[in-house]
Computed example of a mutant assay.
Amino acid sequence: MATKNIKPSLADILFPEARDQQDFAEGILSVPPEQRKLHTETYDFTVGTVVEKLVDQSIFIPHFQRRYVWTDPQASRLIESLIIQCPVPVIYLNQEGNETLSVIDGNQRLTSIKRFLQNEFTLKGLTAYPELEGSRYFELDPRFQRHIQNRTLRCIVILKDTHPQVKFDVFERLNSGATKLTPQELRHGLYFGDLMSLAATVVKENDLLSFLEIKHDKRMKSEELVLRFWALSEDFDSYRKPLSIFINDFAERNRVLSPERKASLKSSFSDVITGVKNLLGPLSFRIFDLDMRVESTFNSALYDALMIGISMLQRKNAVKEISMRDAQQALANLVEKDEKFRKSISIATSDDTQVRYRVDAIVNLFKK
């Protein structure tokens, strides 16, 4: 039987975000009904107060936010809107555990206002008050300065007692930039702490980008792969789809780590990735046929199966002693002849039954 190509569906190609959106919806339904409510408070902060809070970091721009991209003319028009009392869109903030507020939506606006009040650019491209063209903040008449400082910005704060998954869903709904953030980029900001920093360190120490032939990992895919291994390996028996939400729960529980816990997580990943490399070498996590012709350079479902399966075997010291060539042939044979395994790494890959089947198949394939 010829090996069937495992390709994404046409819908996945044309609408690549559809599955992520389905995961978000399923994630909300996994939260008890009484906890699905969004807890918010509304504040009208003056511009002066907001800038003070940005300076002392009681309001801050989190890591997942895209960098500042507005031009000076764009920022100038915002300042002009403040002067003519044109309404400014609502700013959305997230209340952190330490009572600071992270910016969910409004980074470009807040950064522009702060830059102007700190005299970092001159006003350009004004239409209502061209007389102010070329002025920095300190050059404006004090009455204009006070007027700008006293303008209010409507801020909606999502309170910390909101369920984390509800917050994640809201972040995704507000994620409307030209380049939408990936679930891992959102996760990195929402749960930033020891775990996210450790994942980035583990990627570097294990040279994961080179091994997976990822030239530029601007969307944090490699860090997500580390997190999904940790989440699945530590609580595999309790796994329930969607996978994205399962990883979120793990990230929430492990935001703060002790030195011992960090060391344990680091070694768990490095031990398993080394074990997989020893078995399959350069063909690790790839789909290939019995002639070693590669059909897919990386398959994330196969990654799960190999990493979790080998991890289980290592804990019992039960990995079969086998040559790399024989291991590669065994895996190619499994993909070609086991239709259920093929489906488990290509269709509805986050379903509980699919995840368990492919992991069990790898365990049986490589156990002593």
Rank of each mutant, 00 (worst) to 15 (best):
T152S: 04
L174T: 15
P183W: 08
L159F: 03
Q165W: 05
K160Y: 15
R187S: 05
E172G: 03
L181H: 09
T162C: 14
G189M: 02
K160P: 00
F168R: 06
E185A: 08
Q184V: 15
L186Q: 13
Q184P: 06
Q165N: 12
D161F: 11
E185I: 11
T179L: 13
R173C: 12
R154G: 03
P183C: 10
R187L: 15
G177Q: 11
K160S: 14
Q184S: 11
V157T: 05
K180M: 05
D169L: 01
C155I: 02
L174Q: 08
K167C: 02
V166I: 12
T152R: 07
F168M: 08
R187Y: 13
E172S: 09
L159M: 15
P183F: 09
I156F: 01
Q165L: 15
C155Y: 03
A178W: 02
G177T: 10
Q165G: 00
L181N: 13
N175H: 09
K167Q: 15
I158Y: 06
R187G: 13
H188G: 02
C155L: 05
S176N: 14
S176T: 12
V166L: 04
K160E: 13
N175T: 04
C155W: 05
K160Q: 12
L159G: 06
I156N: 02
C155S: 10
D161R: 08
H188E: 09
I158F: 02
R187F: 15
L159N: 10
H163F: 12
K160V: 07
R154T: 14
C155G: 01
S176V: 09
I158V: 15
T152G: 03
F171D: 11
R173E: 06
F168K: 01
C155N: 05
L159H: 07
C155V: 01
E172F: 10
L174M: 07
K180W: 01
S176E: 14
V170S: 07
R154I: 09
E172Y: 14
E172V: 03
R173Y: 04
K167A: 06
V166C: 02
H163G: 02
R154Q: 12
L186K: 02
T162A: 01
T182Q: 11
I158E: 00
F171N: 02
T162W: 07
